Amino acid sequence: MIRERRSLNECPSNIEAQNLTHGPEFHLMMPSEDPELQPVLFGLFLSMYLVTVLGNLLIITAITTDSHLHTPMYFFLSNLSLADICFVSTTVPKMIVNIQTHSKVISYVGCLTQMSLYIIFADMDGMLLTVMAYDRFVAICHPLNYSVIMSPQLCGLLVLVSFLVSILGSQVHIMLVLQITYFKNVDISTFYCDPSQLLDLICSDSFSSNIFKYLAVTIYGFLPISGIFFSYYKIISSILRIPSGGKYKTFSTCGSHLSVVCLFYGTAIGVYLHSAVSNSLRKSAVASVMHTVVTPMLNPFIYSLRNKDMKSALWKLQCRII
């Protein structure tokens, strides 16, 4: 029996609409179709996943066990590391299983679940990076009131609000995707269920889909980036008024955060620019891997290599283990 397959850019016509929960399948893109490369890719992505999880777990453990790091900045960093572990765990394990089993298939329920978790933790990353920029703004621009402003209650509230806002975005995505009607198998041009591609399936109301995309980009992209830019504008303005001897020392506390911000948003923008402009599926796949796999893996290295306090905490942790 020949199975009908459609791409994300095709909408069904004159086909009786059926609910997607009746057993459709989505077909994810494999990193490579070459059978000889499958063992190499399996080992590569498994290694990257383990490095990411272990690296972020080390950051969380070091912050938890070292009393010197019980500050707002490291509290947010530990939550960012936890979000990174969850973020990479929503996509990479499924890709590793697909490589090992030579299968591209993901069920509708599995795809919807993956999309939901992906949105939650991707948005959580962005929100936490914005909160961390605010923390640096208060620390540098209002140092005398820092401990009062960044109280434990406010820090916990900021993390909670970030999580709730991320869940809200995920639930709205799910409500829209549930409008999709069933037209057999669907090809997705990434190795995970990309929310923007799933929204393209809503053929009956593409206007609402596009409006929601722009709204989501504004709330979860433009506003956080604007908040980060504003925080660093105020930070740089304050640093310029400091005598030359203390400028580098003051701004050095922001270096790791700025590096992670550039890496996270740079790769995220690259993913959507490639999908919107480029016709090359392979280039889009590389951009997706950079955003979903490489970025969470590099974050622990950035914070551990550029931060003296983290180096000291990790060294103490290693001494305890040995």
Rank of each mutant, 00 (worst) to 15 (best):
E4T: 09
R5A: 02
S13N: 07
N14W: 08
N14G: 04
I15C: 06
Q18W: 06
Q18G: 03
F26Q: 06
H27A: 04
H27Y: 13
H27M: 11
M29C: 01
M29A: 04
M30N: 08
P35F: 11
L37V: 07
Q38E: 14
V40T: 13
L41R: 04
G43K: 05
T52N: 05
N56K: 04
N56P: 09
L57E: 11
I60G: 02
T65L: 12
H70V: 06
Y74W: 06
L77P: 02
L77T: 11
S81C: 01
S81A: 08
L82R: 05
I85S: 02
I85Q: 07
V88Y: 03
V92G: 00
I96R: 02
S103N: 15
L112K: 07
S116D: 14
L117W: 13
I119P: 04
I120S: 07
I120W: 12
F121D: 11
A122N: 15
G126D: 15
L128H: 05
V131P: 00
A133D: 13
A133L: 08
D135K: 03
F137P: 02
V138W: 03
V138C: 02
Y146Q: 08
Y146S: 07
S147Y: 10
I149V: 15
M150V: 06
Q153W: 12
L154E: 12
L154H: 09
V161H: 14
I167D: 14
I167V: 14
H173S: 03
L178I: 03
L178E: 14
Q179M: 05
T181C: 00
K184Q: 11
F191R: 00
D194E: 15
D194V: 14
P195R: 08
F207R: 14
S209L: 05
N210R: 10
N210S: 09
I211H: 10
F212D: 07
L223P: 06
P224S: 08
I225H: 02
F229E: 10
F230D: 09
F230S: 10
Y232S: 01
K234L: 13
S237Y: 14
I239E: 14
I242P: 06
I242E: 15
G245K: 13
K247P: 00
Y248K: 12
V261F: 05
I269W: 01
G270T: 07
Y272C: 02
A276K: 08
V277P: 00
R282W: 06
K283E: 15
A287K: 07
A287F: 10
A287Y: 09
V294K: 00
T295D: 12
T295L: 05
M297W: 04
N299H: 09
P300M: 01
S312V: 12
C319N: 08
C319P: 00
I321Y: 10
I322D: 06
